[in-house]
Design a protein around this nucleic acid. Structure first.
Length: 882
DNA sequence: ACGCGCCCTG
DNA sequence: CAGGGCGCGT
């Protein structure tokens, strides 16, 4: 896995570098361009760079996006309610929400926000909404006209105001859920509000509460410092922008240094509380009430989250102390070596501690969230720390079980904590810090992935998420005790909830991040690559996965790939290095949701070895929703159900008729062979490997899914219409290349009439010819240079005959079997091409970067008619027989 | 803005 | 051979 990671990283780096260098467009200042690139990368790719903050940040960003979406969708509703121009109002609301989420945390500063409706809020909003990549907090401070949230541009960008990210992130989920509340009646709102307030009041007495305003800066600085030092290693050129970016992002609230925490309820809190109440009283009528209530709720939620955060941090610190006590003596030496890796490890420990200990206290919040969740589709509630913690806890337990160091009982949270400590101690004593670190890494990975998963799921299917949320919460605690086999821990809870199953697919497979799942209502999502992106913006969130990857890689001591392109959305992780792995298979292999019985699990789980419960969810990945119609496979072609193992041997599939693309995708997915995908269960691969694979799957789905439904390919009909390209098609294309180097798409359609054309197929064919050309021209250039080197002085000396090396090379490539008689015309063209290259090189034109273009222009005119025979689906037989 | 083609990479 | 990025032409 390290190898893979490193390779990926390298490629990513190179790509990035290339991109950076290649960007000639003048987009303002280079810094801005960089920043945007980073942003986009962060959104769409891994942002391993700042893993520390990723957990929360990612979620935050995504949430913000989602919030916007929701708001947009709700426009109609809001309009009806509000007499004012809907857009303005909504944007205002949105801003307020966002401002509150981000701004209220800044303690006293926010005191004026509520009553005044505040310029501050708006300003902050403007900041975040404008999605300008700027690092100076001052921008946000300057009050200005409210900027309507630019949905398109901002969808991919982070919106956190630089000054408030700490608590901002956690609060987001709640705000989302609260949004749903809009649709509830006032009564509901009030009731809820009252409940929440009660809770908050209770919480407010917590000694851990503190005003964030003062701390944030300090914390951020600290975090930044650590981040910078950590990532310096992988800065590779874009360090500046990335660092800056990170700064603005801030570190994750969860992981942030606990050093400055503490203190009782701030005066600001109380003040704000009062303010809220006043406002409530004032706003008894009209939509303003709605708005205010929502705001209030958000604030409260935020506060809760903040409290939780504080708690977590404190716990983290405690845990850390314990940790150090136990291990420092042993690991000191290692730490002495102290490089980035070491520091990373330390942080990991912190994180881990955070997670495990946080879980201890998450109950109250969970309860609240659950309650709230029922009212609206607060899938978002899933996002809340409580859930996260819960899952983390479960993971921790799981890990303990895996290592056989955890006792069966883990009922009480204290118990749990103790167990964790015990485990640590034992490990420290026996295996040493290394093992512990490994365990922690795994745990962390799992937790992160789960969180991501949860977020995604929540976004993708809100309503279901509620149920899922509940199920998950309840299930996790109980699972470990029920059986040593953790695999059954999470799934069972879902079983009773039919509605959950659809999205649980994603949800459960932490690795499966794709939102495109069938369940998701995103209408446009399967359109084009572009839309793919949009999709992500809408629902999914690449970053979480990224963060996951980053974390995992980092934990493993490997640099994180910066350029993990779309791996995220997708999905299928087959095996997991982090222990999450194999689920991908399961998920992919499992058929939809029918409430599955635990009985089904045993075989699967057994092969899974150890993995977190969530990973074991045998839910099919969203991708599965797109049944790859395998004409021969009778429609169940691709996603093999869990039972596929027991089914007729996969080999029965007619691979020759399998579409090429499908095969390739499958290969990427299944680690190779469609027929052997069941072997995946036994494979152990690094998580990093899965990203790309999953990606390919998503690609298939998203790109091909939209094309005409493949369903109309009659599997049983004698008709040769295929939805994909077969190896024979490839061969045919190669032969066609002898006639035409630049076939038009129409031509391709004519000559591949036995293929059901869609964008996928078309582009694939075009790509084929592009690749053919590439090879062709490379050969030409090579031989031209060779001729020049050999002293050929005149082009006339150059000739391409069937016995020439050049021709042999070409023939070997396009007509390997040599069972096709290459037309003379091709020889002529080849000769012309060769000479063109020769002349150009001799003339020194090759100094020009685009010197080949002229040649291409010439060659593209030399295409000749492709014999009619090629139009026949059976042309190969006919041609080759000749 | 979109599609195409080249280039580079894996 | 496929992905992805980029530039160019429309």
């Amino acid at each position: 896995m390290p190898d893979h990671d490193s390779s990926t990283l390298l490629s990513g780096q190179t790509k990035r570098r290339r991109v950076d260098i290649g960007v000639k467009r003048t987009v303002g200042s280079a810094i801005f361009a960089r920043a945007r690139e980073n942003l986009i990368d962060g959104m769409n790719q891994s942002h391993s760079v700042d893993q520390d903050g990723d957990c929360s940040l990612v979620g935050d960003r995504e949430k913000s996006n989602v919030l916007r979406k929701l708001l947009k969708r709700a426009n109609s509703y809001e309009d009806s309610i509000m007499p004012f121009p809907g857009a303005t109002i909504i944007s205002q609301l949105l801003k307020n929400n966002m401002g509150k989420n981000g701004g209220s945390d800044s303690g006293f500063q926010g005191s004026g926000n509520l009553s005044s409706g505040g310029s501050e809020i708006q300003a902050e909003d403007g900041c975040s909404n404008s999605s300008r990549e700027r690092d100076s907090p001052s921008d946000c401070l300057s009050p200005g006209p409210p900027l309507p949230p630019p949905p398109s541009s901002s969808s991919f960008r982070r919106q956190q105001p630089p000054s408030s990210h700490n608590s901002h992130a956690p609060s987001q989920p709640l705000s989302l859920s609260s949004f749903d509340l809009d649709r509830l009646s006032d009564e509901h709102l009030r009731a809820k509000r009252a409940r929440v307030e009660n809770i908050i009041r209770g919480m407010s007495h917590s000694p851990l509460v503190r005003p964030n305003a003062g701390d944030q800066d300090g914390n951020r600085d600290n975090e930044n410092g650590s981040n910078n030092s950590d990532h310096r290693g992988d800065g590779n050129g874009h360090g500046i922008s990335s660092n800056e970016h990170r700064r603005s992002d801030g570190a994750s609230s969860i992981l942030s240094s606990p050093g400055s925490r503490g203190g009782g309820v701030s005066a600001g809190e109380a003040y704000r509380e009062n303010k809220r109440k006043q406002r409530l009283a004032q706003q008894q009528h009209s939509f303003t009430q709605l708005v205010c209530s929502r705001q209030e709720q958000r604030q409260e939620e935020r506060r809760q989250l903040k409290l939780q955060l504080e708690d977590m941090q404190k716990q983290l610190r405690q845990l850390q102390e314990k940790f150090y006590q136990i291990y420092d003596s042993e690991t000191e030496e290692e730490e002495e070596n102290g490089e980035n890796g070491e520091s990373d490890r330390v942080r990991e420990r912190e994180e881990d501690g955070n997670l495990s200990e946080d879980s201890i206290r998450s109950d109250g919040l969970e309860e609240r969230h659950r309650g709230r969740g029922r009212n609206g589709h607060d899938d978002l509630s899933e996002l809340d720390p409580g859930l996260f913690l819960d899952r983390a806890r479960a993971l921790l337990r799981e890990q303990a079980l895996i290592n056989g160091e955890l006792e069966e009982d883990v009922d009480g949270r204290e118990e749990e904590e103790r167990n964790g400590e015990r485990v640590m101690k034992r490990r420290g004593g026996a295996a040493g810090g290394r093992q512990l670190a490994e365990t922690l890494k795994q745990e962390l990975n799992c937790a992160v992935s789960q969180v991501v998963d949860t977020v995604v799921k929540g976004f993708s299917s809100p309503k279901q998420a509620v149920g899922h949320h509940i199920g998950c919460h309840t299930s996790t605690p109980a699972a470990p005790s029920s059986s040593s086999n953790s695999s059954s821990s999470c799934p069972p809870p879902f079983a009773p909830l039919p509605s959950l199953t659809p999205d649980s697919r994603f949800g459960s497979s932490a690795l499966a991040l794709s939102l495109n799942g069938d369940g998701s209502p995103t209408p446009n999502y399967h359109h084009s690559s572009n839309q793919r992106l949009h999709c992500f913006g809408d629902i999914i969130v690449p970053s979480p996965l990224d963060s996951f990857g980053g974390l995992s890689s980092r934990l493993s001591g490997m640099p994180t790939p910066n350029d993990q392109t779309e791996a995220l959305p997708l999905v299928v992780r087959k095996s997991g290095g982090g222990g999450g792995g194999e689920n991908g298979n399961l998920s992919s292999s499992l058929p939809p949701p029918a409430p599955h019985h635990p009985s089904l699990h045993p075989p699967l789980t057994a092969s899974l070895g150890f993995s977190t419960p969530s990973f074991r969810h045998p839910f099919p990945l969203p991708l599965m929703g797109y049944p790859f119609q395998n004409p021969l496979g009778g429609g169940d072609g691709y996603p093999p159900g869990p039972k596929d193992h027991h089914r007729s041997s996969p080999d029965s599939m007619d691979m020759t008729r399998e579409t090429v693309s499908l095969r390739t995708k499958m290969a990427s997915l299944g680690g190779g062979h469609l027929s052997h995908h069941h072997h995946l269960h036994h494979r152990q691969s690094s998580p990093s490997q899965h990203g790309p694979e999953g990606l390919s799957l998503s690609l298939i789905k998203s790109e091909c899914g939209d094309l005409q439904d493949m369903s109309d390919i009659s599997p049983y009909s004698g008709s040769t219409i295929q939805e994909g390209l077969s190896p024979n098609h490839l061969k045919k294309a190669k032969l066609m290349f002898f006639y035409t180097r630049y076939p038009s798409s129409n031509m391709l359609k004519m000559f591949f009439s036995d293929v059901k054309f869609n964008r996928c197929i078309t582009s694939q064919l075009i790509k084929w010819f592009s690749n053919f050309r590439e090879f062709y021209y490379i050969q030409m250039e090579k031989f031209a240079r060779q001729a020049i080197n050999e002293g050929v002085a005149a082009v006339e000396e150059l000739a391409v005959g069937r016995d020439s090396e050049l021709f042999r090379a070409l023939n070997m490539h396009y007509n390997k079997a040599n069972d096709f008689e290459v037309p003379n015309r091709f020889l002529e063209v080849a000769q012309v091409t060769l000479r063109e290259f020769f002349n150009a090189i001799v003339a020194g034109k090759d100094a020009d970067p685009s010197w080949k273009k002229a040649i291409y222009k010439v060659i593209c005119k030399l295409d000749s008619e492709v014999p009619e025979v090629f139009k026949s689906p059976n042309c190969l037989q006919e041609l080759l027989h000749d």
